[in-house]
Design a protein around this nucleic acid. Structure first.
Length: 425
RNA sequence: GGGGGGUUUCCCGAGCGGUCAAAGGGGUCAGACUGUAAAUCUGAUGGCAAUGCCUUCGCAGGUUCGAAUCCUGCACCCCCCA
């Protein structure tokens, strides 16, 4: 079992751990380990990936992973790492979010397997606890002076402009209580989380010592950051989600494919389950020939397959070839429409195409790729107009039925990456 | 309350009776280059049935063959003196 821990260390996944010697010893037998997830949206995102893959690694090593969805704590809001008081979510929104997240976790964890991954919602045990019971049983064990010393609370108290509500202040107690309950129910002795969770994790360990006279353990991974300072999993256009509905497999693939060279090694180690020797040879290849981007490709393929399956990866690869120049022909409409799922499309009567009156200039405007005919004309004259990825040579070009890329779709493009679809119905 | 300055095309900013759809810069968009990076270079940048026509220079009138440019009134902004 030391090998397992050694691997986690090598991957850079261990930031802090309580009583590491005994923890490693404990891992010599089958254990349960839990990671909590905030139900702040109806989909998990790249930020959740680390926790999911951590659970996965434990399952692969023969332990039982427990994914805890914070149905109760989500109603409160974790102040850790947050500079401002958070808005509370409605019950309905929470329920929808939890359902969405549960649906995605099956990709990462085997819930049927003998090592039985478990999904729990802390609302299930919190909803029946009365306020008075909670204060007597749990609150009694929390010295306020210790709570005030925790980083998550202190940083907020030191601000003149933010402060912290009693509600958020209490968050730590709920998460601590979760740990005790999971110990009671599953014998779970280990909790992992991002380094911002250290305070909450140790709070649970303290509580278990007082309430159950038992020793629990915790470990944190360092928060995944990008070398340029930007947050991992964010782009100019927003969060990178794990749900294909929110972020297409193609865009997900592209996010990883475009990771900076300096970040690629970290991501391979922390997020993929590729073996050490392969990662090290990718490191060497990246040094020798960065332009080949072998690391980024491997990373993108590995994660896209994990999150979107083989089908999703195939789709992303097909879309990548097309978005980077490959001519489009002989494709079916459904393939085109899923590849271009993120691209705006416009329906046009089929007669206009058949009767040979649809000029390329009109088509570009119709597809929303130019805001005026003048702009469309300019684009074509400068060589920036494409039909099915083939450059338009003449401003007099007229579209007809032979230009269809699928049964009823023509793909127009302006410049490098602005696509627009016309559907002829 | 008195005096002065300003309001220009996406932004900044020239223009001070015709040659102004309006210099220059930024941004944006294309093209080349490139590792789907950054930088760089080139071109474009009000609309349209387009050797022309229409709309645009705070708003409304006026002078003139002709106004972003001159005059009058109005609105908003800035500065100075009370």
């Amino acid at each position: 079992m030391e090998r397992f821990w050694e691997d986690l260390r090598w991957r850079g996944l261990i930031h802090q751990a309580t009583d590491e010697g005994r923890l490693v010893e404990l891992l010599g037998s089958r254990q349960s380990m839990y990671v909590g997830f905030d139900p702040t949206a109806d989909s998990l995102h790249v930020g959740s990936l680390l926790g999911l893959t951590m659970l996965r690694r434990f399952q692969a090593a023969g332990h039982r992973p427990i994914a805890l969805v914070g149905g109760a704590t989500g109603m409160i809001g974790d102040p850790s790492g947050k500079s401002d008081e958070r808005n509370l979510l409605s019950m309905d929104a929470l329920r929808a979010n939890i359902e969405g997240m549960q649906a995605q976790m099956g990709r990462f964890l085997d819930f049927d397997d003998h090592s039985g991954a478990v999904l729990v919602n802390n609302h299930d045990w919190m909803r029946d606890v009365t306020y008075l019971d909670f204060l007597r049983d749990v609150g009694k064990n929390f010295p306020v002076n210790v709570m005030l010393a925790k980083e998550s609370v202190r940083s907020r108290l030191e601000r003149d402009d933010a402060g912290i509500s009693y509600t958020e202040f209490s968050y730590m107690l709920l998460q601590a209580f979760d740990f005790v309950r999971l110990f009671d129910r599953y014998g779970c002795r280990i909790q992992c989380g991002g380094s911002d969770q250290w305070g909450n994790i140790t709070a649970g360990i303290d509580l278990a010592r007082r309430m159950r006279q038992t020793q629990l353990f915790g470990a944190t991974w360092p928060l995944l950051t990008r070398s340029d300072g930007a947050k991992m999993g964010k782009t100019e256009s927003g969060t990178v989600w794990l749900s294909a509905r929110r972020t297409s497999a193609y865009r997900f693939f592209q996010y990883w494919y475009n990771i900076a060279d300096e970040d690629a090694g970290h991501c391979l180690r922390r997020l993929t389950d590729l073996p050490r020797d392969e990662i090290e040879s990718l490191d060497a290849a990246r040094q020798a020939d960065p332009a080949a981007r072998a690391s980024q490709r491997r990373l993108a393929e590995n994660l896209t397959r994990l999150v979107h399956g083989d089908e999703g990866l195939d789709l992303a690869l097909a879309a990548t070839r097309i978005f980077f120049g490959e001519e489009i022909s002989d494709l079916r409409d459904d393939a085109l429409l899923s590849i271009f799922a993120d691209v705006p499309s416009r329906a046009v009567p089929r007669e206009r195409l058949a009767s040979g009156v649809l000029t390329i200039v009109d088509a570009l405007v119709e597809a929303g790729l130019a805001s005026s005919k003048g702009e469309a004309r300019r684009a074509v004259e400068q060589g920036g107009g494409y039909v099915n990825n083939r450059r338009i040579e003449s401003i007099d070009r007229v579209l007809d039925l032979s230009d269809l890329a699928g049964e009823s779709v023509i793909v127009l493009r302006r410049g490098k990456k602005n696509y627009g679809l016309l559907r002829f119905e």
